[in-house]
Write a protein that binds this DNA or RNA. Structure first.
Lengths: 215, 215, 215, 215
DNA sequence: GATGAATGAGCATTCATTCAT
DNA sequence: AATGAATGAATGCTCATTCAT
């Protein structure tokens, strides 16, 4: 009767729960959908299976999410939450790292998560594909990407300030490269974890932030 | 390691057509499926729609492709064929370019195609996602990727030989970085064509092949 | 044969409210159902919509009406009440009219109400159709019709007594014709208000009560 | 292979059958729907039951009628066909009757059919109610009614010509009264076959066509 | 009295696939 | 080589009703 610690994301769509129990059910359903997407993609997402996995009747699912689309938006909320929360363990808090260590940590994080949270990345890529056709999801992911980009850029700026990174670093270009590279590497690792020599690749990428000889 | 360019069409699966007209019908169906996947993803792929778009009866589709899976393999064949064939126009033939020009051209090509052949890339990424669950498709894409990697690496080796690229270039690492970056950038451009400052990003990437200061 | 005007409300079915507020809620719900039937027929009657229109929870509806059938009986009660109450405005009270004026007024009333209370007639006809399958509703409507018939017949008898109507008038036949005609005209007017030249039709009908030439 | 004697009504809606067998199936389905509506009204119309009664799979029903609405239009077609075809038996052909006999026969017909073809009238009234909300059905019924009205009016005109009917007969008014009366009587007889003393009522109605004393 | 949560049974419709012709 | 007809098994969603609070 006092476990009201859940976040209130997703209150915008579908039918909003009014009690703590309802809120928990709603999240359980979104999480079930999340897992099924990870296992079988959107193609394999059936509302009935989601309900069954959450241990409720199909009608109960529709009590919380008016439509399948609503449910999927609930999954996006979950994913955003997930990306905001997790970091590779055994890493010092970001505040205590130098910018170059921070960048490395950032990349390490992708690599760690692709192993430890494979599901998260599969769902993320499924959503990227879906966002090509669904403006609502496109907007949600765009926001998420913007957050990531902003974080990277402030890290790069800090690095330039401290002298960790080359002073003539083009912030926008570099962040674009880093993001593109991260996404691509994530996709590679998803397909085949051994297809990328991760350590040396990271070294290579790190070079992009160092001083350049000529222009 | 050098039989990548052959075209083994679709003789292996389902029912093989015996006439030229039959072969054309088969391809028309696969192409229709291809377009629908580009528009609506695998989620939106309905055999009836494919048949309708190809202007034939649904039973006729099943005459050429026993199952939906067969049809999808037909789409993969089409895609592989497409990637083997197309290059950005107004480019000198690869043989006449220096390795560094060739690399640049390679990257330019991705960028050009993502605009001119958006469909191709959407289908490709849809297939990458599907390959996570479908071993048969995984194998087909792995071959395709291996071909690409091989091509890139021979380009890099040639560049080291001619002195275009740094002599201490790690071929494997660099090709891995280039592929990861290309895939990630393709995905970025697919979502939002303006999200990547393409020229400066290419310049940055080109730096990876130049001499390093030993750090 | 003379207890037609009593109002046995809804005390028989389901759960009876015990307070004035409860009684009001109950009627509000029946009225909401009434409106929805008028708009969408029985086909379109959903308990949830009824509850929503009455501004209460679906569970509250079931507190007042155990089942949907109960609710519908509540609607019939409302309808009977309505027919007992309304008359066209600007008409002198029935007691002050001559029988022939009374008859005319009766017909006028149908015409007036079909315009002013379209809903009432739609619900009435919906109930007539439903009564073909639902004995309970059949009985309720039969009572209502008997009341109407009795009223008409006493009007006709009075007219014969006063000499307004032909002395050889067959009371039963004439009331049957008048009722059949009224229902049919109501249905016509419901479908298309301009399909009946009302005034001349009334004149024609009035002739039925005048002397015959013995043929 | 030569029983192509069916009518081609209903080819406009849904998916049109291409073979004689298909045409027969289509009609069988519409007829099954017709019967179920007669038994349980639109409220009780379930596509599954229709398919079951026609002895086919539910998917087969949708092969012939894209939607439930389409199916209902098929029922209207059937009904119109029915009304165009049937007349009370043991009646001389219309051409050999005098107009007054023809009118009587017309009324008799309603009475006969309400007994012999109760279903037809129930479905008709169900459709009248539905037409209040469905413009497409409204139009179809309006046409049917116009046909009936036209037929009645030509009968009345013929009667005036032959002297069977009063020369100052108002054709439009009389046909309106006759139609309204017929519909109303049909509804009465549907509810309770004994509620109308049919013979004397017909005599009464016949009077409307005879000469009038004053105006 | 009133409500949020929950459900069993059902509903129109879809979809890949089959088969006789 | 092609098609009209047919189907089993879903599929997303609805609806009247129940129950604990």
């Amino acid at each position: 009767m006092s476990d009201v610690t859940e976040n209130r994301a997703a209150e915008r769509d579908g039918r909003a729960p009014h009690t703590a129990r309802g809120e928990a059910q709603r999240e359980a359903l979104a999480r079930a959908a999340y897992q099924i997407i990870a296992e079988s993609g959107f193609e394999g997402l059936r509302t009935r299976d989601v309900a069954a996995r959450a241990g409720v009747n199909i009608a109960t699912l529709h009590y919380y999410f008016a439509t399948k689309e609503d449910l999927i938006r609930g999954v996006v909320d979950l994913l955003i939450q997930e990306f905001a929360t997790f970091r590779a363990p055994d890493q010092p808090p970001l505040e205590e790292m130098s910018p170059s260590e921070g960048l490395r940590s950032e990349l390490e994080d992708v690599r760690y998560q692709i192993k430890a949270r494979r599901d998260t990345y599969i769902v993320l890529f499924e959503l990227y594909m879906r966002s090509l056709r669904d403006p609502q999801i496109r907007e949600m992911l765009r926001e998420m990407d913007a957050g990531w980009r902003g974080h990277l850029e402030s890290l790069l700026i800090a690095g330039v300030d401290t002298g960790d990174f080359s002073s003539d670093l083009d912030i926008h270009t570099t962040s674009a490269v880093l993001i593109a590279f991260s996404k691509g590497m994530a996709m590679q690792l998803l397909s085949d974890p051994d297809s990328v020599p991760v350590q040396s690749v990271y070294d290579e990428i790190a070079r992009l932030t160092t001083a350049r000889d000529s222009s």
